[in-house]
Design a protein around this nucleic acid. Structure first.
Lengths: 161, 161
DNA sequence: TTGAATTGCGCAATAG
DNA sequence: CCTATTGCGCAATTCA
């Protein structure tokens, strides 16, 4: 349900420093000129309780300073880089996995085909074998009651797994 | 899939990347995902407010107004929701794919085992056949005292695929 | 303690 | 106009 809306305070940010995208050229025909800035967004629900207001009276000098800090920017940049790297890997991995699926599927089919083939071969041999056995039995057998010899169609399937 | 715009510099040229957003730091350490919406949020963001917000540098009221807009917030919220949903699906899909890999691997093993078995069976049968054939061709005599000469090229495996 | 890697999240552009 | 995707940056965490 509702989501406590978030607040965003105006961040007193007027950084004059950073920003700036250097070249957008390349392939940007239409101007998306819009700045792509995200600007502040939610506000931390302050732990401060008290029931007063939440105005940002002070305390942000430090923060501001932090953000302007060269140190900070550097860290951010490094992290952004790491993030990109990580995400790239993640995507790559996903793709690899997908491909693995395809490969395995293919191999599976090959294996199944092979099984089919082997099964057939086996069945043929078995038939031959049985046939032979019958012949032998018939032949070797002395004249006796061999009347109803029916070379029954012997099925060769006795596979179980 | 074309996104002409976007200025991203990968090159760590100068820290000019831009954008300075500050996202708040959620004060809640543990709560993950779901629960962060009930955090105490004091946020104004009133739509109707006509007033001024405490903006230090005064200048972008218009823009700020846009962001304060109920409409805007609503859209953002919807989008955030959609984003979450999309990402969830993405992750789920990745997991499914991974699992598929495992299943396929298993099945593969089963199939290979089966192939091995069938091959063995086949080989045995073939051997039997050959033996028999030799006996037949070799002797017309009773299979008892075989003079002891097995001239046959005894192949025990003739695999062909 | 430190820095890279991950992860959750929101924004904005854009694809559908 | 709305939702779904996607690239991105921030910050909190987790790993080494």
């Amino acid at each position: 349900m509702s989501r406590p809306s978030q607040a965003k305070l105006t961040t007193p940010n007027q950084p004059g420093v950073s920003v700036i995208q250097s070249q957008v050229a390349a392939a940007a025909p239409s101007a998306t000129a819009a700045s792509l800035q995200q600007v502040p967004q939610l506000i931390p629900a302050h732990p401060a309780a008290g029931g007063g207001k939440a105005a940002p009276p002070s305390k942000m000098k430090k923060q501001q300073a932090d953000k302007d800090s060269e140190e900070y920017r550097q860290r951010r940049e490094r992290n952004n880089l790491a993030v990109k790297k990580s995400r790239m890997r993640s995507k790559q991995k996903a793709m690899d996995t997908q491909q693995r699926v395809n490969e395995l599927k293919e191999e599976n089919e090959r294996l199944e085909a092979k099984i089919k083939l082997l099964s057939k071969e086996l069945s043929v041999l078995k038939d031959l074998f049985l046939e032979h056995a019958h012949n032998l039995a018939d032949n070797v057998q002395p004249p006796a009651a061999a009347a109803g010899a029916s070379p029954g169609p012997n099925t060769t399937s006795a596979n179980g797994q």
